[in-house]
Nucleic acid binder design. Structure first.
Lengths: 261, 261
DNA sequence: CGCCGACTTGAGCAATCTCAATCATGGTGG
DNA sequence: CCACCATGATTGAGATTGCTCAAGTCGGCG
C-alpha cells in the first residue's frame, strides 16, 4: 500500500540520491511558458504577463525535492517536462504516494493568500523541469483577475473529481481491476489493438495503484491471459475492448488464469 | 469495500424505501439560514441576501435522494440537520461511499457556470434538512462577489485536503488503524477518558472506512483490549492517548488480541 | 565478466471478504 | 404481557486477496 516501509525507504532514498549534484539550474521564464499549462489556457494576457514577472524554470534530477510536506508555500509550481510525484509522509516515516503530475499540471495547490503549508511533498521522478511562480504574486492575481480565479476554480473541481475517482477505485476495485483501468487510460483512442510505453517504472505504478510491486507483477501476469503483453516498459494490448471488460469483474479472471497454467 | 453488491443493494433499497411518502416539504429560507453554513461565514451580506432570494429548505426522510450521479446540477445544497451520504454508482450497480456531509456542509460541488453534472449521488441518512440554492444564481454570484469566490476557493482546498487524507489512509492503514483514527476524531478534546455517541450506524461507518460491516465489528473487538468499549452506539474510551497509539502500528495489536482471547 | 537495479516468481502468512448462523433490540399485533 | 418479526450487530469458518520474505531472472553497463 505504501511506497515502502520506513527503514527500507530510507535505504532506497539513500541509494537514489547518491552522487547527485546539490545545485539546480534556474532560468527566467515568460508568459509563453505559462500558457503551456492548461490552467492558464483561458487566462487573460495581462494577468499572465504579470504572473510571469518573477517566473523561473528549474531543472530537476531524479529524486530532487521541490518542496516538503509541512513547509510554507513560497511558490506555485508546474511541471514543464518529466514527472513529479506527490507524497504524504506519516510521522512514522512511511511514505504514501498521493499522485503524479506531468505535462503542465500544477503541483500542489494554488495559494490563495495567507500563510499556507504544503499538504504533501513533491519530488522529481527522473529528470524534470518545473516552472515556479512566487506564491504571493499568484495569490494577489487570483484576487484581481476574474479569469485566473475562474481557472483555479475549474481546476480545483477537476482535482476533486480525480481524487473522488481514486477513492472509488481504492474502495471498490481489486489490484487487477485497478491495473486494467490504468492501462485502459494509456491506450491510444480508436484502436482495438495497440501498443504503448508505460510512463514510469513499475515500482511507481504499483505505488500509484496502492499495491506492492510484487502484487503488480502478478496482476500483469494475470492480464497476459487477456491479451496484454509486457516487455519491461512496452505494453501490447491485443484488444482494448477485452481489456475494458476486465475492469469490472473479480471472479472471471481467476478461472481463466487457472486454465492457462 | 463497497456498500453492497449490486443485487443485494437493490433488495436493500427496495426494503428501506417501502412505505415512504413521495412528497417533500419545502419552505423558503433567508440569509440567516445561509449564514449557518461555514462556507458563507465571511461572505458579504449583500451577496448572501441575493443568494437567498430563491433559497428553500427541504425536509428529507431516510433514504431520500437529493440528486443522482450524472444528473444535471440545478442547485447547490447544504446540510442543515442530519446527515447526507455521497456515493458513486458503478455501471455494474455497485455503490461506493465517497463521503458523509453534515452541519452546514455543502453537498457536491459549487457550480461555476456552464453545464455541469453531478459526480456523485446524494442521499439522506435518517431524517435531514437541506438548504437549496439555484445553481445559476450561485454561479453568477461567484463571478460577481470576490468574497464568495474566495470562500469557495478556500472550501475547495479543504475538500482536497480531506480527500488526500482519505487516500493516504486507504493506502497506508489497515482497518484497525482507520477505525482508531475515526474514533479519535470523535473524542471530545481535553479529556483522556471520555464517552460519546457514534454519529451513524456501524454499517455506514464501515462503508466510510472502506471495509465490510463484519470487519468493522472485529476491529471494534480488537480495540476492546485497548480500553475502547462499545454498547451499540455509545463508545467509552478509557484513554485517548492509548487509542492514539493504535493509529500507527500494525503488529502490536495482533499480539495483545491473542493474549486476551 | 560480474554487478546492479528493475522486475519476476514462489511459498507462507496476514488481512479482509464471504457466507452463514446467532444474538440483541425495538416495534407490532394479539 | 408475550410471540413474532425486522434490523443491526456480532461471531465463526473458510476462501481470497494482497503482503512479506526470499530467491531467481534479465538487461544494461563498467
Amino acid at each position: 500500500m505504501t511506497i515502502d516501509t520506513s527503514r527500507a525507504a530510507q535505504r532506497y532514498d539513500a541509494v537514489r540520491r547518491k552522487g547527485r549534484a546539490g545545485s539546480r539550474a534556474s532560468l527566467p521564464a515568460g508568459p509563453d511558458e505559462l500558457r503551456k499549462a492548461p490552467l492558464f489556457a483561458d487566462v487573460d494576457e495581462a494577468t499572465l504577463s504579470r504572473l510571469s514577472a518573477d517566473a523561473r524554470i528549474e531543472s530537476l534530477q531524479d529524486g530532487d525535492t521541490l518542496f516538503h510536506q509541512g513547509a510554507g508555500v513560497t511558490d506555485v509550481s508546474f511541471v514543464m517536462s518529466g514527472y513529479v510525484k506527490l507524497m504524504r509522509m506519516a510521522p512514522s516515516g512511511r511514505q504514501t504516494l498521493i499522485g503524479i503530475r506531468s505535462d503542465g499540471e500544477m503541483i500542489g495547490e494554488a495559494p490563495a493568500g495567507g500563510d499556507e503549508i504544503h499538504a504533501v511533498s513533491a519530488e522529481a521522478v527522473g529528470a524534470a523541469k518545473a516552472l515556479k511562480l512566487p506564491a504571493p504574486r499568484f495569490a494577489r492575481q487570483i484576487k484581481e483577475s476574474p479569469s485566473l480565479c475562474a481557472a483555479v476554480l475549474r481546476d480545483s473541481k477537476e482535482r476533486i473529481a480525480r481524487l473522488v475517482g481514486e477513492i472509488e477505485s481504492l474502495k471498490s476495485q481489486n489490484a487487477d481491476q485497478r491495473l486494467a483501468h490504468f492501462l485502459l487510460a494509456l491506450c491510444p483512442p480508436d484502436e482495438d489493438r495497440c501498443r504503448f510505453r508505460l510512463p514510469y517504472d513499475k515500482r511507481l505504478i504499483a505505488a500509484r495503484l496502492g499495491v506492492k510491486q510484487e502484487t503488480l507483477s502478478r496482476a500483469f501476469a494475470k492480464l497476459r491471459v487477456h491479451g496484454v503483453r509486457t516487455e519491461t516498459r512496452n505494453v501490447h494490448v491485443e484488444s482494448v475492448a477485452h481489456l475494458a471488460e476486465q475492469c469490472g469483474r473479480p471472479g472471471a479472471r481467476a478461472r481463466l488464469a487457472f486454465q492457462a497454467s
